[in-house]
C-alpha cells in the first residue's frame, strides 16, 4: 500500500527525476499545441537574421578580411543564429514567478508533492525547448540560404548540452529576480536591466570575440557570456578543449547561482507561510 514518509533525498532519487521530466514533457507538448502560432511568433528571428546578413556582409567586405578574430562570415552568422535562438526562446521566468507571487497561485502549487523550484525549472526548460526548436530551424534556414551549411554535425550535441545549461543559468537568475517581488512591488525594472546586460555582455548582437582586448577576458568570464556566447561559440568551432573550458565554466556558474536561488527561495517560503504572498 502507501509508503510511509521517508527521507526527502531518498524519495527524490527514487521518483524525483521521473516526476520532473514528466513536467518537462508536458510543458513541451503544451508549447507545441499551436504550431502555426508558434511559427508566426518565431518569425522575429527571420527578420533579425535578414538584417544581420546584410550588416555582416557589408562589415566583412569593409574590413577586407575573410576572418575576423578567427571567425569567418559564415561562422559569425551561424553564431548569431544560435545566440538569438537562446535569447528569443528563453521563457519569461521572472515575469511568471512575479505574477504567481502576486496573484497567489504560488500558494496553490505548494499543495502538491514536488519541489516548487524544480517544477518551475522543468516548466521553463520545456517551454524553451519548444520555442527554441522552431526558432532555430527558421533562423537556420535563412542563414543556410545566405552563407551555406551549418558547422559540422558532431559539434551539435556539445552545443545542445551547453544550450540546456545556458537556459538553466537563465532560469536561476530570472527566478531570483522573480522572487524579488516578495520584497519590491514591481520587478520590471530589474528584468529590463537583466535583459540589457545579456544583450550587451552576453554576446547576443555580436560575438564577444570582437570586443576590445582588455574587455574581452573580463566579459567572457561573467555568467551572461556563459548563457549566450559559450554555447554559440562552441557551436561554430566545436573542439574538446574549448568544450571542457566553457562547459566547466557554465557548470560552475550554475552551481553558484542555484545555491543563491535555493537560499532566496527558503527565505521567500518563510514569508509566504506568514503572509500568504
Amino acid at each position: 500500500m502507501r509508503r510511509p514518509p521517508e527521507g526527502a533525498t531518498r524519495r527524490f532519487w527514487r521518483a524525483g527525476p521521473a516526476k520532473y521530466t514528466a513536467v518537462l514533457r508536458t510543458q513541451l507538448a503544451h508549447g507545441l499545441a499551436f504550431p502555426a502560432d508558434l511559427a508566426l511568433r518565431s518569425l522575429a528571428i527571420v527578420i533579425f537574421m535578414w538584417v544581420f546578413i546584410h550588416l555582416w556582409r557589408a562589415t566583412y567586405a569593409g574590413a577586407g578580411q575573410s576572418r575576423v578574430q578567427g571567425l569567418s562570415l559564415s561562422d559569425t552568422l551561424w553564431y548569431l543564429v544560435l545566440a538569438e535562438t537562446i535569447m528569443l526562446s528563453k521563457p519569461r521566468v521572472s515575469t511568471e514567478i512575479a505574477r504567481a507571487v502576486r496573484d497567489g497561485s504560488v500558494a496553490y502549487q505548494l499543495a502538491r508533492p514536488f519541489n516548487w523550484l524544480g517544477y518551475q525549472a522543468a516548466v521553463a526548460l520545456g517551454d524553451a525547448l519548444a520555442r527554441g526548436g522552431v526558432t532555430f530551424v527558421l533562423g537556420g534556414l535563412v542563414v543556410w540560404l545566405a552563407v551555406g551549411p551549418p558547422p559540422p554535425l558532431w559539434g551539435w550535441p556539445l552545443a545542445g548540452l551547453a544550450v540546456i545549461v545556458a537556459w538553466l543559468i537563465d532560469f536561476c537568475m530570472s527566478a531570483l529576480i522573480g522572487l524579488l517581488s516578495f520584497v519590491v512591488e514591481d520587478v520590471t525594472a530589474f528584468e529590463w536591466i537583466y535583459s540589457k546586460l545579456i544583450l550587451v555582455l552576453g554576446g547576443v548582437l555580436l560575438p564577444l570575440d570582437f570586443l576590445p582586448d582588455g574587455w574581452r577576458q573580463l566579459v567572457q568570464a561573467l555568467p551572461f557570456a556563459h548563457m549566450i556566447w559559450a554555447p554559440a561559440r562552441l557551436f561554430v568551432s566545436p573542439d574538446a578543449g574549448l568544450f571542457l573550458r566553457l562547459f566547466g565554466g557554465q557548470l560552475a556558474w550554475l552551481m553558484v547561482l542555484s545555491l543563491g536561488l535555493g537560499a532566496a527561495y527558503a527565505r521567500a517560503q518563510k514569508r509566504l507561510a506568514v503572509n500568504g504572498g
Binding site: 521518483a15 513536467v23 499545441a33
Partner: peptide, 25 residues
C-alpha cells in the same frame, strides 16, 4: 480550487492525469 485550473489548458485532460500520476508517484 474552483477559480484556478490545475489542468494544462492547451492539452487534453489525459495528459494532465498522466503527469499527476508521475507527481504523486
Amino acid at each position: 480550487f474552483g477559480q484556478r485550473s490545475q489542468l494544462w489548458m492547451h492539452l487534453p485532460a489525459v495528459d494532465t492525469f498522466q503527469l499527476f500520476g508521475r507527481i504523486y508517484e
